[in-house]
């Protein structure tokens, strides 16, 4: 049995990976978490994933590591630095992000230049990938927007905004490529990467022929029953982005219950016509992509009890 250390296992992707490994007949997950979690039945190590000494200790006896640590820019860089120095030649599946392509447009394959020109997060993601050069056996997954049950960003938040009719048909403001990828496909890619040691380096993760954002919003609105979608005029989105973003963010932090803001970076992403080329994930990792309608139906079912409550 392969012993796999899962870092960031209290997060959306990490938790799903740990469960999938536990359900497998070839791997045993060991979850690395900042806090001891009583509810977690899996074997676990309490550690600080940004601490070199903690990680050197934690990787002892591990065959592979899945790194799902997320957070602010400093955490991402410190985590990468600590992990890649500790890992030696162990297999590492590192969750990076499409953010490494920055403001690139058009079809983007893994050999496209890294362009950390958008924000501090992108800079950190690129730096983390550079730090991976210290290790020898790394596959870096660069997912687009991960949706599905459990996705706060690309399922719950979008559903809330659709329900409020703050988004819908955005016209030119929704022409960007969504590059969505279902959580199940991300988990499958990670598991496949663990068992395919000859695959190294970056791999894009986005469903083939992912819709543009307008198409994603419409398909999701249909699954949620939130149709007809509204054509949101450009001036309204601008007002929402510029005028409401800061007050809503503050209010959300204070109460945790308010409708989500649309920060300018999000509105920018919806316009960015970038298309991740998923060929390598399909061919080298053999990912079978969840059809959009199936994935959205699952996401809508996950959200439904919440809206009934």
């Amino acid at each position: 049995m392969m012993r796999v250390l899962v870092l960031g296992a209290d997060g959306f992707v990490g938790l799903r990976v740990a469960r999938a490994l536990a359900a497998s007949d070839w791997a045993v997950p060991v979850v690395g978490c900042r806090r001891a979690n009583a509810a977690c039945r899996l074997e676990r190590i309490v550690l600080d994933a940004t601490d070199r000494a903690d990680l050197r200790q934690a990787v002892i006896g591990m065959d592979a590591i899945v790194n799902c640590v997320a957070g602010d820019a400093r955490t991402i860089v410190a985590n990468a630095d600590a992990l890649f120095h500790a890992a030696a030649d162990r297999r590492i599946v590192h969750m990076s992000s499409m953010a490494v392509y920055g403001s690139a447009i058009g079809m983007v394959a893994e050999d496209a230049p890294l362009l950390p020109d958008t924000n501090a997060y992108a800079v950190a993601r690129v730096e983390a990938e550079h730090l991976a050069e210290a290790a020898h056996n790394v596959v870096m997954l660069r997912p687009g927007c991960i949706y599905g049950a459990g996705s706060a960003q690309w399922s719950r938040r979008i559903a809330d905004l659709l329900t409020l009719r703050r988004i819908g048909d955005l016209g030119a403001n929704g022409d960007g490529g969504s590059n969505v990828v279902h959580i199940d496909d991300v988990v499958a890619a990670i598991l496949s990467a663990l068992r395919t040691p000859e695959v190294r380096g970056p791999v894009n993760l986005a469903m083939p022929d992912a819709p543009d954002w307008n198409g994603y919003f419409l398909a999701f609105a249909r699954a949620l029953g939130e149709v007809p979608v509204r054509r949101v005029p450009g001036w309204q989105l601008t007002l929402d982005t510029k005028g409401l973003a800061i007050p809503l963010k503050l209010a959300e932090k204070l109460t945790g219950r308010l409708p989500p803001p649309i920060p300018p970076s999000l509105a920018r992403l919806w316009r960015q016509d970038i298309r991740l080329d998923p060929t390598r994930a399909s061919v080298a990792l053999g990912v079978q992509w969840t059809p959009l309608a199936v994935g959205l139906a699952e996401a809508a079912a996950w959200l439904r009890p919440r809206s009934d409550a």
């Binding site: 819908g168 048909d169 419409l218 609105a221 249909r222 149709v227 007809p228 979608v229 509204r230 054509r231």
Partner: peptide
């Protein structure tokens, strides 16, 4: 009158 399709 008009009917509005799901796409608006």
């Amino acid at each position: 009158g008009y009917d509005m399709a799901a796409d608006g």
